[in-house]
């Protein structure tokens, strides 16, 4: 039986510190390694090392979609649920946004309409999981297939993506949001990702939503006994993830200047990876939005940095290995906690 007065030993304090701050240490380590590696030899980054302004800007703007998504996805996983459809939701949003724009809809209406689409896509997930009581994994696998299927159907036969061609021309401003319209050297999409992340941090720390998500994932019975409407909380979180997937789709579409129905493929895996890397427990209850954000930075630095060191076809292997390692370490940490 444990004593009431527990004096943490210095070893415990080190462990605690590592658990709380390891993600930042990993980020520093990754940056140091990648920036001390001599990249001049490699053709992709002939202009200098990892920390060059150009490279950092490059990484950050490629990262905009996952950075947008990480926060909401973290909150959803904290509540003990999962969304495997984010990649497809992102693709569908990218296609719809590109279609709207290429057909002459101005930026703001197209943007808002796509975000509303995100609300709908998230709400469908929430409906399947909460109202129809389909297991989250299966429900979101269904919508993974559905959203991707719709995205593919929206693109004309024989064409791989919505892009300039024939009578339709993508307006010149289409790239501005995700690539060319810059503020302090970075595109709007990146700043939106920052804003979304700040909003999610506020939601986690200053709003009922974050607290209720933790309660729902940590101890659902206690949450219900405390009068929390866990069903509403979860649906709301699915909607948030849907919205963020739509924003990510707009960013990706604008970055690539086309609406590619496959552009979000694999995003669910990246999202799970960065969230696990950030220390979110898959059993729910635990996790920090900011740490997932850092996790996303690490993964993107690694991916882009790696492209400078090894050929692109190493990417799947590295992401898969990272996912397994993150899952294992995450598990070992949480098991040690429960044994204490």
């Amino acid at each position: 039986m444990t004593d009431l007065t527990q004096n943490p030993t210095s070893g415990d304090r080190v462990k605690r510190f590592l658990k709380d701050y390891y993600i930042y240490l990993v980020l520093i380590l990754v940056v140091v390694v990648l920036s001390t590696a001599n990249l001049d030899k490699f053709p992709l980054f002939e202009r200098g090392n990892f920390l060059s302004e150009r490279n950092i800007i490059n990484i950050l703007r490629i990262s905009a979609p996952i950075l947008t998504l990480a926060g909401a996805f973290t909150l959803l996983m904290i509540s003990g649920y999962i969304d495997l459809s984010v990649g497809s939701a992102m693709s569908l949003s990218a296609v719809v946004y590109a279609m709207l724009v290429i057909n002459g809809v101005p930026f703001l209406p197209a943007f808002v309409a796509t975000v509303l689409l995100g609300v709908l896509l998230g709400a469908i997930n929430g409906f399947l999981v909460i109202r129809l009581k389909i297991t989250p994994v299966i429900a979101t696998l269904i919508t993974l297939s559905l959203y991707k299927g719709i995205a593919l159907l929206l693109v004309e036969d024989g064409v791989s993506a919505i892009k300039s061609g024939g009578d339709l021309k993508m307006p010149g401003w289409f790239n501005d949001y995700g690539r060319d319209g810059v503020l302090f050297g970075l595109p709007w999409a990146f700043w939106v990702a920052i804003l979304v992340t700040i909003a999610m941090i506020i939601a986690q720390d200053r709003m009922k939503l974050g607290k209720y998500a933790a309660a729902t994932g940590g101890n659902p019975t206690a949450a219900k006994l405390s009068g929390i409407n866990t069903a509403r909380t979860v649906i709301l979180l699915y909607v948030l993830v849907g919205v963020c997937a739509a924003l990510a789709g707009i960013a990706r579409s604008s970055f690539m200047s086309l609406g590619d129905p496959l552009s979000g493929d694999g995003m669910e895996l990246t999202a799970i990876l960065v969230v696990l890397l950030g220390g979110t427990a898959f059993s729910g209850g635990e996790g920090r939005v900011l740490k997932s954000f850092i996790g996303a930075l690490i993964i993107m630095s690694l991916t882009v940095g790696m492209l400078t060191l090894v050929p692109a076809y190493f990417q799947t292997l590295v992401v898969g290995t990272a996912l397994l390692l993150a899952a294992a370490s995450n598990h070992l940490v949480s098991r040690r906690d429960s044994e204490n």
Binding site: L269, I272, T316, L317, V318, V319, G320, T321, L323, A327
Partner: peptide, 11 residues
């Protein structure tokens, strides 16, 4: 796990 090994194997 198996999503991870899916990527590992294909990787």
């Amino acid at each position: 796990v198996t999503l991870g090994t899916m990527m590992l194997a294909r990787g």
